[in-house]
Simulated scan of single mutants.
Amino acid sequence: MSTYADRLAALREELAQRRLDGFVVPLTDEHMSEYVGAYAQRLAWLTGFQGSAGSAVVLPQEAAIFVDGRYTLQVREQVSGDHWSYQSVPQTSIADWLGAHAASGARIGYDPWLHTKAWVEAATKALKEKGAELVAVEANPIDAVWDDRPEPSTARLVVQPDALAGRSSAEKRAQIADWLTGHKADAAILSALDSIAWTFNVRGTDVDHTPVALAYSVINADGTADLFVAPGKIDEAVAQHLGNAVRVHPRDAFAGHLASLAGQRVAADPERAVAAIFGALGKAGATVLELRDPAVLPKAIKNDAEIAGTRAAHLRGAGAGDLRVVLDRLGQHCR
């Protein structure tokens, strides 16, 4: 499909085949990341928009793209006004727009792995007032029409040495276990990629601009953990680093694993865990505690090793900047 108009038409045809009257397209991934891998760039593929934040809604006869004030000019340069209306956030929310534009009886699809629980609740309410319905899809319809969609990165994880991290992964997991005990919880879901990188002292190259790897984790109250990551991304060095207290599973086994938490008290962050996680835990019969990701605050409190690393990074960055100035001046002199 060489044009964005063709892509929009193909999506509408796919939605019609699924008996859907619309679909919501956010710019995020299954981890609610701001920056996402190429495989998750659905909004850019569909519309041409290259910003780091935005969403779109496609209905049978109209389509809208939602961006904040940072992208007011950019969205008009990159996305055709012939096919899309421009909506400003937060002045207009997707839920409110759907409530005003969706037809009575309409079935509006969404991918539960790409939205928060709060968003689903707000959109469901807005559509219900219009006599319409929000429908979770099992497979994203954009993926069905995106013929050359890239595969998720297969790059291997790398170990962040304890000397640079300042604390071992075992210490960090023990701290989270203590936090769980304090909340009388059995396990915590970690789905934010930076939290997983920090907790396990690992890094990756799966997402531009952030040194993280695509993974999920369940931290247990006994300090053990289940890490869900593509098997080919773990080499011997990483396996030894993780140790026997971390059980490694394929990344696509995560959803099924949630069912094994039946009867347990499980903490999940409503801002960082997608609606599908809450749905799976509820279906399994787990008691869900809506609490902030337990890695967020400890990660923000930098130890001496991390502070030293930050200073070193600033010095390297400053040196690189000075070198660019010298090279620019040399280039001007040579001209």
Rank of each mutant, 00 (worst) to 15 (best):
G99I: 05
Q78E: 15
W97S: 03
L59N: 04
A103Q: 10
F23T: 09
L20Q: 02
E14F: 00
R12A: 07
L20P: 03
G54T: 02
I108W: 09
G22L: 01
A103F: 03
Y71E: 15
W45L: 06
Q78C: 11
E62S: 14
V58D: 10
A44M: 09
R42N: 13
V25G: 10
S55G: 09
F49P: 01
T47V: 06
D82V: 14
Y39E: 14
R70L: 07
T28M: 02
T72I: 14
D82P: 01
Q61R: 11
T72Y: 12
W97T: 05
A16Y: 02
V67H: 13
L98T: 01
F66I: 01
G105M: 04
D21G: 07
G105N: 02
P90K: 05
G48D: 12
Q91S: 03
V25M: 11
M32D: 08
H31E: 10
L59H: 06
I108Y: 13
L46H: 07
A102S: 13
G54V: 03
P90M: 14
R76L: 01
L46C: 04
L15T: 13
L98D: 07
Y35V: 02
F66A: 10
T72C: 02
S93T: 15
V24F: 11
V24H: 09
S33T: 05
G51C: 08
V58E: 01
V24L: 14
T47F: 11
T28S: 12
T28E: 08
A40E: 13
D29H: 04
H31P: 03
E14C: 11
E77L: 15
A56S: 13
H31Q: 05
A53I: 07
S85A: 09
A56D: 09
E13Q: 11
S85I: 11
S80E: 14
V67W: 08
P90T: 14
A102H: 08
Q41R: 12
V58R: 06
V58Y: 09
G109A: 15
D21M: 05
G37A: 15
D68C: 04
L43C: 09
S93V: 02
L27C: 04
Y35I: 03
R42P: 05
Q50P: 00
V25N: 10
E13W: 08
M32S: 12
F49E: 08
G22C: 02
D21N: 08
Q74R: 13
Q50S: 15
A102C: 03
H31R: 09
A106H: 06
